[in-house]
Structures are given as structure tokens and as C-alpha cells.
Write a protein that binds this DNA or RNA. Structure first.
Lengths: 227, 227
DNA sequence: GTCTATAACCGGATAGAC
DNA sequence: GTCTATCCGGTTATAGAC
């Protein structure tokens, strides 16, 4: 099920070569147009050998996903050190997501749908994706934690996971975005990050207390299944 | 691109037979396990003939979609005539969605992901799905319109589309739901429909006016692209 | 012009020898 | 760990039947 880790030096090399060829080809031709045969050919390895390292084409996508996550984390590190304003941190982080992913815009659609399949081992909500999911959620935890915003504990608890989900929503919007420079997505990001920060500050209103408790309770029950 | 409509009596019959076999097999074996060859075989038609009526396996899914929508619309008709309370109408409608779709729970996952692909002709946000999407949105417009709730015009305008989106969210949750009798989904429906109605009534608070205007403006700009 | 059928093609995946 | 040969299923080309 999981991706095999090579046991020998030679295996290490082959695995890296296959992965690198795959990432290149995904960008050059898109996901569907990249055949396992073409990946093997460029790596100068047989088709069967590719399957020794990656049990399916989908598993190459998971690595692809990790690749962009690492680019993203590196890109926003300076911002997270520098800026303490929550709205600015959130806006900068989200803008950086779409900038980082821009080279893969054409591929993103098919990858998204591949990954959306609940029976896919790569489904973001599933077990196989947990390590990476945890990393991304941790990144959003850092976005929140490093800010000077005073956030009620019950909200702070659910916020990172919520922002991870929000990021997926933005990415789905971005996939459809045909505007020049992906300007519409950037506008939506500016507007929604502002609204999120505003909503957090409003959540302390006495009139909203009840709904807030219910929303957070619901989220918690979803994240931690009673079973 | 679009599904060919048969020109002759005989074609009519073949098309209906293929569709019916496909719907049966999807339920019996799931989407992936149902091969185009098995559909053709059960219909006692050649593989090539199936492709005369349905340009791809995905196009059979669109019909599947329409089928469940019609079941759903019929199921909630009495409720919509009888009950005027918005929360009750919404709750009843959503509960009925998952009840109607229950026989297809096992298939739903792969269908969802097929359809989530932005480059799929069947993507719910795309052009090919527009007729069906409009029907579903109209159904939610009726849920709202037939209620005795007094809803500000700007909210009422965006509400049907929002509820359609909300329905998709609930269905995605339902796909993952392994609880007996799909009880957790029903709980989430009860809780969220209540919250939605509450949120609508809160939206008139002076303190929320600003955010409400911004949220609705954002939604509108997304639905009606400036291009 | 409308339907049906047969025979391929293509690409993801697997079996099993070395 | 690497290979070749093969399977399997969605899709297409194309020729004939009504």
C-alpha cells in the first residue's frame, strides 16, 4: 500500500530518477497525457520497474503534492518570521499557495479529481495522506500561533484544520480561474482572509456565542468520530 | 459532446435499455467494477453500439445523476406543499437527499470524483451540467420561496445557489459516513440546517451588515464573472 | 442518415522469470 | 531490483445493415 522505500543505493537512485521524470512530465504534458510508459522511457527503466517503486500512478501524485508543499513552506518562512498581523499572515500564506502552484495549474485539475476520490489511497482525508495532511495543518497552526491576534481557545483549537480546508477550497476555485495572472483568485483570497479575521473577532459577540459554540462543537464531533 | 438523442423508435428502445442496464450494474457492482462491456452484454448490444448513444462512461453518470434528482424531487413534493417553516423544509429536503441516495452509497464515491474533475464534461460547475444544475438550484429556490420566512432580498437572491453548494458538501460528508443508518450525516444535517436558518436571521444585526454585504458581493462576483 | 457490429488501439496494472 | 509478456477495460475506426 505505502510507497516502498528502496533498500539499496542503486534503488535509491532509480526511485529518485523515476520521481523526477514523473514530476517533469506532469508539468510538461499534464497528468493524463503522461503515461507510465513515458515516465519509464525517460528514466531509461522498464515499465515494470517503475511499479516496483510506485504501486500506482496515483502514488506519484502524492509525491508531487509533497513537493509543492515543501516549496510553499519555504516560500512563506520569511513572512511568518517577519509579520505578526494575522490577516497579513493568512493573506500572504494563501497568495503564496497559488503562486507556488501556478506552474502546475494545467495539471491541477486532474490531480484534484484523482485525489478527491474517497476510495483513492491518496484522499486527503484518508490514512495514507495523514503525514502530509498533518504537516500542512501544522503550517496553518504556525500561521495562527505566530500572530499577535488574541483568539479564544475553542476557536484556536479548530482554526488550523479549518484553514487547511479553506486552502483546498481556494485551490479548487483557482483551478477554474482563467483570468489573466489568476487575478480573480487573488481577489477572492484578499476578500476571504479579511472576512475570516473579521469573523473571528465577531465571534465574541454575546449574540453569536450560542452559534459559535454549536459550530465548534459540530466541527469537533466531525473530526473526532464517536466510533 | 452532448448525448445523442435517438431518431428512431428502435434507437429509443436501445438507448433506454443501455441506460437501465448501466444504472442496475452501477448499483450492483459499483462504478469501476461495471465495465462498458458488461453493460453492453446485459443489454444484448455490441460494445460499439453503446458508444453510439453515450459518448463515454461518464455520460452515463450524468443520467444517473438526473435519475436520483428526479427521485428526490418527487420525494419532497408533499413536504414542500405542506410545511411552511424554513428550517423544517430545509431539514426535510436534506434528509431526503441522503435517503434517496442511500442505495447508491457504495457507488457515490467514485462518481463524485469522476464528476469533480474540472476537465470532465460532467463537472457540476461546467456547461454540460447546466440544465441539471439549474433544476436542482430551482428546487432549492422553491424550498426558500415557499417558506414563511422573511428573508432580505440580497440574501434570498444568493440562497438557492448556496444551498445547492451546501447539498454537495453534505453529500461528500455522507460518502465518508460509515455510521449505522448514516446517523452521523443526519445529525450533521439537523445541526447545519438549524445554523443556516439562525445565521439568516442574525444577518440583520447592524454589526453584521458590513460582512454580509461583503460576503454577498463576493458570491455575486464569483457567480457572474466580470469577463 | 440511423443503427449495429467487429476489430483494433492505448495505457494502467500485474505475473513471473532472471 | 529489473525485465518481458500479458491482461484488462475505456475508447475509436470503420465497415456493413436497416
Amino acid at each position: 500500500m505505502a510507497i516502498a522505500s528502496p533498500k539499496t543505493r542503486r534503488g535509491e537512485t532509480s526511485r529518485a530518477a523515476i520521481l523526477s521524470a514523473a514530476l517533469d512530465l506532469f508539468q510538461e504534458r499534464g497528468y493524463e497525457a503522461t503515461t507510465m510508459r513515458s515516465i519509464a522511457e525517460r528514466t531509461r527503466v522498464s515499465l515494470g520497474s517503475s511499479y516496483h517503486y510506485f504501486p500506482s500512478k496515483e502514488h506519484l501524485v502524492l509525491e508531487f503534492y509533497r513537493h509543492t508543499h515543501e516549496l510553499h513552506a519555504a516560500a512563506i518562512a520569511p513572512l511568518l518570521r517577519r509579520d505578526k498581523d494575522l490577516a497579513a499572515r493568512l493573506r500572504g500564506t494563501m497568495r503564496s499557495v497559488v503562486v507556488t502552484c501556478e506552474p502546475f495549474h494545467a495539471v491541477a485539475g486532474s490531480i484534484f479529481s484523482t485525489v478527491a476520490n474517497p476510495s483513492s489511497p491518496l484522499n486527503p482525508f484518508g490514512a495514507a495522506a495523514k503525514p502530509l495532511r498533518d504537516e500542512v495543518v501544522a503550517l496553518y497552526a504556525e500561521v495562527v500561533r505566530g500572530s499577535d491576534a488574541r483568539i479564544p481557545a475553542d476557536i484556536a483549537e479548530m482554526l488550523p484544520l479549518t484553514l487547511w480546508l479553506y486552502q483546498m477550497g481556494i485551490l479548487y476555485f483557482w483551478i477554474f480561474d482563467r483570468s489573466p495572472g489568476r487575478l480573480r483568485t487573488l481577489e477572492v483570497i484578499d476578500e476571504t482572509t479579511d472576512l475570516i479575521v473579521r469573523l473571528i473577532s465577531l465571534a465574541n459577540l454575546p449574540l453569536l456565542r450560542g452559534s459559535r459554540k454549536r459550530v465548534l462543537g459540530l466541527m469537533k464531533s466531525i473530526v473526532e468520530p464517536p466510533s
